[in-house]
Amino acid sequence: MSRLKVGIVGATGYGGAELIRLLSNHPYFHIYSVYSSSQEHVELAEVYPHLAHLTYTLEQIDPVQMAKDIDLVFTATPSGISSKLVPQFVNEGLKVIDLSGDFRLNSEELYKTWYKKEPASQKYVQQSVYGLTEWFNENVQSSTFVANPGCYPTATLLGLAPVVKAQMVKEDSIIIDAKSGLSGAGRALSHVSHYAEINENMKIYKVNEHQHIPEIEQVLKQWNENVQPITFSTHLVPMTRGIMTTIYCTLKGSYTIDELHNLYTNSYQSSPFVRVRKQGTFPSTKEVSGSNYCDLGLTVDARTNRMTIVSVIDNLVKGAAGQAIQNANVMMDFEQQTGLHVLPVYP
């Protein structure tokens, strides 16, 4: 079959660079063009020397021309930018996978409160589907516009989904302790990303204010309308890639680890990118680095009747570019794994 032409808007960010890395090996998608609003006409290799063998020049964003040139566009732009760009692409008939947070929340007021920006038009929010493919596969398959989940929500929701959907945990007991590598903060320089600030250091940030909180709660409530507000804490750790979420929740009944482990293995038996670890073993971030895998480890404390779930992903792959390509595969009726057969980089 002829390859589909795709474009990448926001190619100068880390998410854009990962899209280029992964799509370069895709048998059915061809990167036709890359776009930037801040570095037009610059050679891509000047921005990312590790891509020196590629001859792309960053092009001006022109939705009308793009609709003539390409079939699908990935928008790896900051929140507040996609809300203005994506509707133009949709109106021109382009298929869109948006990696920002602009189309994930159903409520305008929630978006204003948590993102501190003006929301996208509800017309387009309602057209989009939430792309957590493991649980919304049919929605993605029938869509032409996907809102790619956030990195923290991906790790958290994949960890919680089986027990929340089965209503096995107390709805007011969910606590998430999340840690991320520095690439999650983006490529722009700030005091947070300064070497002297993060080296040999660990920081909690956006305490009770992280914009991914309402996204997580919105999906949890779709699975169980009785879920109460969660406690969600995020930390920066001195590594480049990776997210680890350690999730605590109180069980409603006396479930054994065998029962819970069977629930998870059965829930994800048809999900090629979710790997449930053997009982008594727990994943680390390096074991998924550079890959589209989410690894899960489970345990139950019989003294407290609390379940602990450990979920790890690469924030730039399963938490962004890899999941976006997975969604594009499903949208175009390809196998989910197409172009994503990438083993973790280890050590």
Score class of each variant (00 low, 15 high):
7 G>L: 04
14 Y>I: 15
21 R>S: 12
25 N>D: 15
44 L>E: 05
45 A>S: 15
48 Y>H: 15
58 L>N: 07
63 P>Q: 04
73 V>P: 03
76 A>G: 12
76 A>Y: 02
100 S>E: 05
103 F>W: 02
121 S>V: 06
125 V>K: 01
132 L>E: 02
134 E>W: 00
138 E>V: 11
139 N>A: 14
144 T>F: 00
152 Y>H: 04
156 T>E: 04
166 A>L: 07
169 V>N: 02
170 K>A: 11
173 S>W: 00
184 G>N: 08
187 R>T: 14
193 S>W: 02
195 Y>S: 12
197 E>N: 15
198 I>P: 06
199 N>S: 11
205 Y>I: 15
205 Y>W: 10
205 Y>H: 14
208 N>V: 11
210 H>L: 13
217 E>C: 09
223 W>E: 09
226 N>V: 12
226 N>G: 13
229 P>T: 12
231 T>M: 09
232 F>R: 04
233 S>C: 15
234 T>P: 06
240 T>E: 09
245 T>P: 03
246 T>D: 02
254 S>H: 06
257 I>V: 14
258 D>Q: 15
258 D>I: 14
260 L>W: 01
271 S>N: 08
274 V>N: 05
274 V>W: 00
275 R>L: 10
276 V>C: 09
287 E>D: 12
294 C>M: 06
297 G>W: 01
300 V>S: 02
301 D>A: 10
311 S>K: 03
313 I>C: 07
315 N>H: 08
323 Q>E: 07
327 N>S: 15
331 M>N: 03
335 E>N: 13
344 P>V: 07
